[in-house]
Computed example of a mutant assay.
Amino acid sequence: MATPSWTRCHIISLADFTPDEYDTVLQTAASFREVLSRRMKKVPTLQGQVVANLFFEPSTRTRSSFELAAKRLSADTLNFAASSSSLTKGETILDTAKTYLAMGTDLMVIRHRDAGVPQAIADEMDRLASNVGVLNAGDGQHEHPSQALLDLFTICSLLDPERPRLELLKGKKIAIVGDILHSRVARSNIWSLTAIAGMELHLASSPTLLPQEFADFGVGRSGQLQLHWQVEPALENADFVMTLRLQKERMSQHLLPSLREYHQRYGITRDRLQACNRGVKVLHPGPANRGVEISSDLMDDPEFSLISQQVTSGVAVRMALLYLMGGGKA
């Protein structure tokens, strides 16, 4: 596989991603999806390189997906767990990162509950002229770039399995419903889904979970962004609906009357999907609260749900990101 034009050493945010960079990720992921369909699912692209998964926050899907992606690229992996690390003895996060650097790490995948930690580690790696790439796997209420990219890949692959690309979003309406205030996934998806003109992105939730300042995310973007405090206008004629988990662990105050009332007003069900376009598909980044943000039967219905495809797409997309960031050093 020829290395496409790629100049980023780090992937911290999608705010300044260009359409060409999105297409590069999508096309590279499509190539790796083909690799994953073979009997022999490994390629030697990153053989001899070390990928360190530094997860300071619990994760199932993202951590496992990055670990599998690295192994499919023949990289050596180091997995960090905060609860059993020297952080419990007072070591700083930057000293932990420098320890992994001293072990010969080439790429660091960082997840942390506080926004800005991946950027701080990337800045330290640059200060040390280490040539180590840092990939943000989710930081606080900031961003989750790889999740938004796999969501984009899932949607574009459905529209054109052979050649997923950003321009396929033209003329499409996508609704994001749920706890947008606390969602790093929503923030990254806003950047990626509004990167092309001719598409509509609609955000819907209660006023406490969708403050008016989210309208600022749409300023200067190519795609159209609209906010709704009722779910019905967002779902009307939508082609794709993404529902988000209520992040109760991040809520520092009482923002909802009850989970039951939230489901009645904003939960995605078969009845609510009748307002959407025929053939509408539903996404969820997981983990999901069944019966709260989405009905359980809808999650498991392959006629509507793309949730399992999102998980599968995650490995191919993360292979693409690791390849693009590390391929030039192979």
Rank of each mutant, 00 (worst) to 15 (best):
S83V: 04
Y262M: 01
V282H: 05
R265E: 04
R278Q: 15
Y262P: 07
A102V: 13
N79C: 05
D297H: 05
L128H: 14
M1I: 12
A129S: 15
A30M: 07
V51N: 01
T28M: 08
L259R: 06
F17E: 07
N79W: 05
M108P: 02
V280M: 06
A320I: 10
W229V: 14
H112A: 06
L283I: 01
T18G: 08
W191A: 14
Q253M: 11
T92R: 11
L135G: 01
T194D: 12
V109W: 00
D300F: 05
V317K: 00
L68H: 03
L36W: 05
I176A: 03
D126N: 09
S13C: 05
S192T: 15
E67T: 11
G220N: 12
V109S: 11
Q274M: 09
R250M: 08
L166K: 02
G198E: 06
R260V: 14
L246V: 09
E236S: 09
A29N: 03
L107F: 09
D271M: 09
I180Y: 04
R8P: 09
Q309R: 14
Q226P: 00
E21F: 09
L225R: 08
Q253S: 15
D151E: 08
S252Y: 01
L107G: 01
H144T: 08
Q226N: 14
D300T: 13
V134Y: 10
I294P: 02
A69P: 00
G328M: 08
R318F: 07
E167N: 12
A215N: 03
G314Q: 08
K89F: 03
V311I: 15
I190A: 06
P302D: 10
L246A: 05
G220F: 11
D297N: 07
S313H: 13
N277W: 08
L135K: 06
S64A: 15
M325I: 15
E91N: 10
P44F: 13
R113H: 15
Y266S: 05
S296H: 04
L78A: 08
G267D: 05
E91I: 04
T45P: 00
V117I: 15
G171R: 07
G171F: 14
T88W: 04
G138H: 05
V50M: 13
L209D: 10
T154G: 02
S296E: 14
T45M: 11
R111T: 02
K281Q: 13
L209G: 08
T88I: 10
L181Y: 04
K172R: 15
V185Q: 05
S65M: 06
E34G: 00
G140I: 05
L227K: 06
L306T: 00
A175D: 09
L193N: 01
E232S: 10
R163P: 00
P19F: 03
D114C: 02
L46Y: 06
E21W: 14
S64Y: 13
N189V: 02
T269M: 12
Q47Y: 10
